[in-house]
Computed example of a mutant assay.
Amino acid sequence: MQIEPSPSRYEDKMQYIQCGNSGLQLPRISLGLWHNFGDVDDYDEAVRMVQYAFDNGITHFDLANNYGPPEGTAEANFGKILQHFPKNTRDEMIISTKAGHLMWPGPYGDGSSRKYLMASLDQSLRRLKLDYVDIFYSHRYDPNTPLEETMSALSDAVRQGKALYVGISKYPVDKTLEAYKILKANGTPCLIHQDRYSMLSRDVEQGILQAASEHGVGFIGFSPLYQGILSDKYLHGIPDNSRAAKPTGFLQRNQVSPEVVEKVSKLNAIALNRSQSLAQMALQWCLRSPLVQSVIVGTSSLEQLQNNINALNYPGFTNEELGMIDQILNEK
């Protein structure tokens, strides 16, 4: 099966923005492969989502070594999907991966040591069938590894031609500032900082966003829909096929509390008044900040992906709407 990309893929379907102080532009919406691209998922639907994303201007595909499930299979499946595209399509894509969480048994399959990061990146490249990734992230801060060692490994990945840029993810503010300083001294400045950001998860507003901006580092938010809670999916209970219904999932039933559902219902009313879905409004809300370059959406169907991309077609918020949203979010 050969995929022929749409010739109109860059015709006003997507907005692009400079990532920090670099020359790299990111689409405002990126496609994440955290869920729904593993071996337990529908491969044909995964192909359709990647093709639709690319045909609509999404050039950034975000992965990690442990995405699946099982771990590693999201990279392997994305590598297979890439084979369906013309070879020169690779130069139109930003492909990122990460290392930092448990991947294989023993003392060298977890953490942020040079041993683990370098081995993991080599494994990722083999699964992806690529010579390099565009962005290689340290997926988390590891207190058991000196920060200099972790940052040195990232810098060497660039020098070895295995990555074009480096980033960090889920680092506390103090270690973030140290990491920026070390990477800059190494001659491989941090391109991008990735962290959780949504209406219901705003911790990065307490220092991370400002630190990234002041140091010329881009910011990209994951889970902008709070794993689906910021959609109409949970307004009337927990559906059987939802993430919260799965006992082994990252989203637990207790996170879909009556208090959260009440907030989401009030937010949904504002979205309906704007003639858009709650998911679309939640994405727009994240992107309202000039400190946020892109958000990563994770979709399980073509319909969800279409809905998310269409969030860019709505007018910006009025001051009154932003005030109403803040009032709801600040309710105890």
Results as ranks from 00 to 15, higher is better:
residue 166 V to N: 12
residue 167 G to A: 08
residue 190 C to D: 12
residue 166 V to D: 03
residue 175 K to F: 13
residue 167 G to W: 01
residue 188 T to N: 11
residue 167 G to L: 10
residue 172 P to E: 06
residue 163 A to K: 03
residue 185 A to D: 15
residue 181 K to L: 07
residue 187 G to V: 10
residue 186 N to S: 13
residue 172 P to G: 10
residue 169 S to D: 02
residue 173 V to S: 00
residue 174 D to M: 09
residue 165 Y to V: 09
residue 164 L to F: 04
residue 190 C to H: 11
residue 174 D to K: 13
residue 165 Y to Q: 08
residue 176 T to F: 14
residue 163 A to I: 03
residue 186 N to H: 15
residue 185 A to E: 15
residue 163 A to G: 07
residue 181 K to P: 00
residue 189 P to D: 08
residue 176 T to Y: 14
residue 182 I to Q: 04
residue 190 C to G: 11
residue 173 V to W: 02
residue 169 S to H: 03
residue 172 P to F: 09
residue 171 Y to W: 12
residue 161 G to C: 10
residue 164 L to A: 02
residue 178 E to I: 06
residue 162 K to I: 08
residue 171 Y to L: 01
residue 190 C to Q: 15
residue 171 Y to P: 05
residue 179 A to D: 00
residue 181 K to S: 13
residue 169 S to N: 11
residue 166 V to P: 04
residue 189 P to I: 06
residue 163 A to R: 03
residue 179 A to Y: 00
residue 167 G to F: 05
residue 177 L to I: 15
residue 161 G to I: 12
residue 184 K to H: 14
residue 182 I to E: 06
residue 181 K to C: 02
residue 188 T to W: 04
residue 187 G to A: 10
residue 173 V to C: 01
residue 190 C to P: 11
residue 172 P to W: 06
residue 172 P to R: 06
residue 184 K to E: 15
residue 168 I to C: 13
residue 165 Y to I: 04
residue 173 V to M: 00
residue 165 Y to A: 07
residue 162 K to A: 11
residue 187 G to L: 09
residue 177 L to D: 02
residue 179 A to C: 04
residue 189 P to T: 12
residue 187 G to Q: 09
residue 182 I to T: 05
residue 174 D to R: 09
residue 169 S to T: 13
residue 166 V to G: 04
residue 173 V to R: 02
residue 176 T to R: 05
residue 185 A to I: 03
residue 182 I to F: 12
residue 180 Y to S: 04
residue 164 L to T: 05
residue 166 V to E: 04
residue 178 E to H: 10
residue 178 E to Y: 09
residue 178 E to S: 11
residue 175 K to E: 14
residue 169 S to K: 03
residue 183 L to H: 12
residue 163 A to P: 00
residue 178 E to C: 07
residue 164 L to W: 01
residue 169 S to F: 00
residue 161 G to A: 11
residue 173 V to N: 02
residue 177 L to S: 05
residue 161 G to Q: 11
residue 176 T to D: 08
residue 169 S to C: 14
residue 171 Y to F: 15
residue 165 Y to D: 09
residue 177 L to Y: 02
residue 168 I to A: 12
residue 186 N to C: 12
residue 171 Y to D: 05
residue 166 V to F: 00
residue 188 T to R: 08
residue 174 D to L: 09
residue 175 K to P: 04
residue 179 A to L: 03
residue 167 G to P: 08
residue 186 N to D: 14
residue 167 G to S: 08
residue 187 G to Y: 09
residue 162 K to C: 10
residue 174 D to F: 09
residue 186 N to K: 14
residue 175 K to W: 12
